[in-house]
């Protein structure tokens, strides 16, 4: 499904990722652990096409997407800080990917409502982004990433910044959702327990071949 092969990313002539390799099978959920600043976010953003690799390859379903622009890769990414569009309401955020693909308004709304219900936010469609809580924003970001039925979902510390009770509840909801959908997931976190709870397989970032120097790039 996803093959990352000897990926090198440089910033200011320093190697931020130094020969990282990772393989994820279809339907598999893999968690990558590592301390803050080790390059986890850089890895996800490079897979998503938001950062250009200096060398190495990213293969999706055996297609080399290393030089493909991000909007053509068909991935889902949940950002650490959500990155919800403040000028759209909740439903328009969730259905944005469908709008870009030319899906009709009524169908978009129906799909958005369905995803909002799945993530426990039924009735939130018309809410403004600045009127929802941090936990609700995480759920909207997840629904937005899943609404286009992406080939693979990348989760960048998706539960960071939540209190313990909310963290545990959302973690359970996420696992149930992914179990039901059979989604392929790459999840990066510094929280081993979260990774072990959510994913089938957990790997240390340092084991991926990265130099793993502390880079403060996140």
């Amino acid at each position: 499904m996803l093959h990352v092969d000897d990926l090198v990313v440089t910033r200011d002539r320093r190697r931020v990722l130094d020969g990282v390799s990772l393989s994820v099978a279809r339907g598999e959920r893999v968690s990558v652990h590592g301390p803050s600043g080790c390059g986890k976010t850089t890895l996800l953003h490079t897979v998503a096409g938001l950062i250009r690799a200096a060398s190495g390859r990213v293969l999706l379903d055996s297609t080399d997407v290393t030089n493909m622009p991000p909007h053509e890769r068909g991935l889902g990414l949940v950002f650490q800080d959500d990155q919800l569009f403040p000028h759209f309401d909740v439903a328009d955020n969730v259905s944005y990917g469908l709008r870009v693909r030319g899906v009709a308004r009524r169908e978009r709304r129906r799909t958005a409502d369905g995803w909002l219900e799945r993530v426990g936010l039924a009735g939130f469609a018309g809410r403004r982004i600045d009127s929802i809580s941090g936990g609700e924003a995480k759920r909207v970001a997840l629904a937005r990433a899943l609404a286009t039925r992406p080939r693979i979902v990348l989760l960048d510390e998706p539960l960071s910044g939540l209190d313990d009770a909310l963290h545990d509840r959302l973690l359970g909801d996420l696992r149930a959702l992914f179990d039901g959908l059979g989604t392929t997931v790459v999840h990066v976190t510094h929280d081993r327990a979260e990774g072990a709870n959510l994913c089938h397989r957990a790997v240390e970032f340092a084991e991926l071949g990265a130099s793993s120097a502390r880079l403060n790039d996140e």
């Binding site: 622009p69 909007h71 991935l75 800080d81 569009f85 944005y96 990917g97």
Partner: peptide, 22 residues
């Protein structure tokens, strides 16, 4: 915010589309 461009791009919006939508 640059992050909104990243989010829109991952969701499939081309550069021109992002200029309009973001």
């Amino acid at each position: 915010p640059r992050g909104l461009h990243a989010a829109a791009a991952v969701l499939g919006a081309s550069d021109r589309r992002r200029i309009v939508d973001v």
